[in-house]
């Protein structure tokens, strides 16, 4: 009797629930579609247009809208290959330095016994580079690294050197030097996040089971921090490949990177070349990422927890 009543009353209720969940489902579908559409319009479409543009050519400062491969075949003429290699070298060097310096720093920030407030201060310090425009930050280095700059003045006046050190500015060294502080936070922050998520008891368990600190690092901490490393790699390598402020301001025309080529093509109104070079940079980034993922998967199959 009682159960019967329950059955009767629950039938329409189930219907209502079903109806409601149907509505929420369709709403979330709509939202998803809208987000994907917006993303497509804002991000994907420009990339496609860029790509399409690279198949046009320029004549008398006018874009000729006839499909051709001329831009692509001409892309590596006039020493572009060398520029590409230099770009890769600089970007990878900077990324590796960031990783080597940034990982221990992130580990220290996330897992050392520093107080909560000092941790907050360090995290706040890491966001400072985002406050100021990159050009303003970079141009300061000229006053510090230059022939008559701060460092040379100090070194000369203290008698450490007799003539000013010249390789500090307008050199590849200067470009690296300018890029490293700018790209430090993008490497450190994702790694810091990933390490913060590692439960302290895992580190203790490894220690308890007999592992040395080095073994714990390579077998537990690093594999679990890999998602952060990959993210840091993307956030650092991308901007490093496309960097143009530092090479422009601190390279002084001696350090030609792909970004410089893009800029000069842009100045010359050769939009198809700009498009082709940009596509090329994106392709480089994707290839490097694919290589990174393959290497990681090979060297620690079970360590890669990107799921």
């Amino acid at each position: 009797m009682n159960t019967e009543m329950e059955n009767v009353s629950s039938a329409p209720m189930q219907a209502t629930i079903a109806k409601r969940s149907k509505i929420t489902l369709s709403f979330s579908q709509v939202a998803l579609a809208a987000i994907m559409l917006a993303w497509f319009v804002v991000v994907i479409v420009p990339l496609i247009i860029l790509f399409v543009y690279s198949f046009f050519t320029t004549e008398y400062f006018q874009t000729v809208f006839t499909p051709s491969l001329d831009t692509w075949t001409g892309l590596f003429a006039s020493g572009r290959f060398e520029v590409t290699l230099r770009t890769l070298r600089v970007a990878l060097t900077v990324t590796m330095i960031e990783l080597v310096v940034g990982f221990p720093f992130a580990l220290w920030l996330a897992k050392s016994t520093i107080s909560k407030s000092s941790r907050a201060i360090f995290l706040a310090l890491l966001t400072i580079p985002f406050f100021l425009d990159l050009s303003s930050r970079t141009i300061v280095w000229r006053a510090i690294l230059g022939q008559n700059g701060l460092i040379n003045t100090i070194l000369l006046s203290t008698g450490v050197i007799d003539s000013p050190v010249e390789w500090m500015l307008y050199s590849e060294f200067a470009v690296h030097f300018g890029m490293i502080p700018a790209l430090f936070p993008p490497m450190v922050l994702p790694i810091y996040m990933a390490i913060s998520l590692i439960d302290d008891s895992l580190i203790e368990a490894s220690n308890d089971l007999g592992a040395t600190p080095a073994q714990t690092f390579w077998r537990v901490i690093f594999p679990l921090a890999l998602p952060g490393v990959v993210a840091g790699f993307v956030f650092t390598l991308g901007p490093a490949l496309a960097a143009w402020v530092e090479p422009g301001m601190l390279g002084g025309g001696f350090v030609n990177l792909l970004s410089s080529s893009i800029e000069s093509a842009y100045t010359a109104l050769r939009y198809p070349v700009v498009a082709a070079l940009s596509t090329f940079v994106i392709a480089l980034l994707l290839v490097l990422l694919a290589v990174l993922l393959l290497v990681l998967r090979r060297f620690g199959a079970s360590g890669l927890t990107l799921r």
Binding site: S201, E204, A205, V220, L224
Partner: peptide, 14 residues
């Protein structure tokens, strides 16, 4: 060795 309260099993290992 210790059996931890939350087990502390390594999530990246089988």
């Amino acid at each position: 060795t210790t059996v931890f309260q939350n087990y502390a099993l390594f999530p990246h290992m089988t």
